[in-house]
Simulated assay, not measured.
Amino acid sequence: MDFSTLILLLSAGFAAGTVNALAGGGTIFTFSALIAAGLPPITANATSAISVLPGQIASTLAYRSELQAVARRLLPFIIASALGGAAGGVLLLATDPSVFRVLVPWLIFFATVLFALSPKIAGVGERLATGRAAGSGPGASATALQGAVAIYGGYFGAGMGIMMLATLSLTEGRDFHRLNAAKNVLACVMQGLAVMVFIISGAVDWPSVFVVASASIAGGWASVRAGKLIPQQVIRWGVIVTGLALSGWYALG
């Protein structure tokens, strides 16, 4: 790994850690940087997934008390997330590299659109919550929807947290902390199972993992100061513009 690549991956990891802590969507940075560093798209996706997992676990542990209240109720979602995440990981590895390369700009574009629409998606969740009492547990349709989200999360991952906002509102109502705690633990489950598939298959570039993961953790810490200095709307538009530019770049490349 040369010096310029090291700086690129450190910068992307730091940006991803900061953005994930403040607004979500940081995987767009790590995935794109790993491709720019020369990794094949499937290896870049697997490496990005394992690089951001420590930050997700840390975020989940911060909600220990909230998780104690929701863990049993979320068991159907947890099972669906585990199965879906593993299935998504297997599906990624079964995808022909040339096909996945064609999908890359569309996957980035889809994740960017999800990120841009996240306030409206949250609004849908709010409306769903009014029709179902918080704490009542997920129904079959909500569990199936969570399983579909998990397959996407294991396959690509960027934007999966936004997709879970609406489904989790069916069980957690409007309580932000419960909603965020549930989202974090399910993200850890689905990506954790996908990462296990990637590790077993040997699809991970470990030197890149250590660089990106360490920078991502540092970015998460820095987000506390960034959140006070930079308006969240500026961060949101930065992610949206970057995502659209990258999707266009890979579509034309």
Rank of each mutant, 00 (worst) to 15 (best):
M1R: 11
L8Q: 04
L10P: 13
S11R: 01
G13R: 00
F14D: 11
A16L: 04
V19K: 07
A23K: 12
A23M: 13
G26N: 11
T27C: 08
T27R: 09
T30P: 03
F31A: 06
S32P: 02
L34D: 00
I35P: 07
A37W: 00
A37D: 03
A37Q: 02
P40L: 13
P40N: 14
P41N: 00
T43R: 11
A44Y: 03
N45K: 03
A46L: 04
P54C: 02
G55S: 14
G55M: 10
Q56G: 14
S59N: 12
T60Y: 05
A62D: 11
A62E: 12
L67M: 01
Q68P: 07
V70A: 00
A71E: 08
A71T: 12
R73Y: 09
R73T: 14
L75S: 12
L75G: 08
F77V: 08
F77M: 07
I78F: 13
A80K: 00
A80S: 01
S81C: 08
S81P: 02
A82I: 07
A82G: 02
G88I: 00
G89H: 05
G89I: 00
D96I: 01
P97W: 07
V99H: 15
V99Y: 14
V104Q: 03
W106T: 07
W106R: 02
I108V: 06
A111K: 09
A111T: 06
T112D: 04
L114I: 09
A116C: 05
K120S: 13
I121P: 01
V124M: 15
G125A: 08
E126Y: 15
L128R: 07
L128E: 04
G135K: 07
S136Y: 06
G137K: 03
S141R: 15
A142Q: 11
L145P: 12
G147M: 05
A148G: 15
G153F: 03
G154M: 02
G157E: 02
G157L: 00
G159I: 06
G161N: 07
I162E: 08
M163C: 13
M163Y: 11
M163D: 10
A166H: 06
A166I: 05
S169E: 05
T171P: 09
E172Y: 11
E172N: 13
E172S: 12
G173N: 05
G173R: 03
D175K: 02
D175F: 02
H177G: 07
H177Y: 12
L179Y: 03
A181R: 01
N184F: 07
V189K: 04
L193S: 13
L193Q: 05
A194N: 03
F198L: 03
I199R: 01
I200T: 11
S201I: 06
G202V: 05
V204M: 01
P207N: 10
P207H: 06
S208E: 02
S214P: 10
S214E: 04
A215E: 04
A215I: 01
I217T: 14
I217F: 15
I217H: 12
A218P: 10
G220K: 10
G220W: 04
A222M: 07
S223T: 06
G227I: 01
G227L: 05
K228R: 15
K228S: 13
Q232K: 15
Q232L: 15
Q232I: 14
Q232C: 05
V234P: 01
W237S: 11
W237T: 10
G238R: 05
V239T: 05
I240E: 05
T242D: 09
T242G: 12
G243H: 02
G243Y: 00
L244R: 06
A245H: 09
A245N: 08
L246K: 03
L246R: 01
Y250C: 09
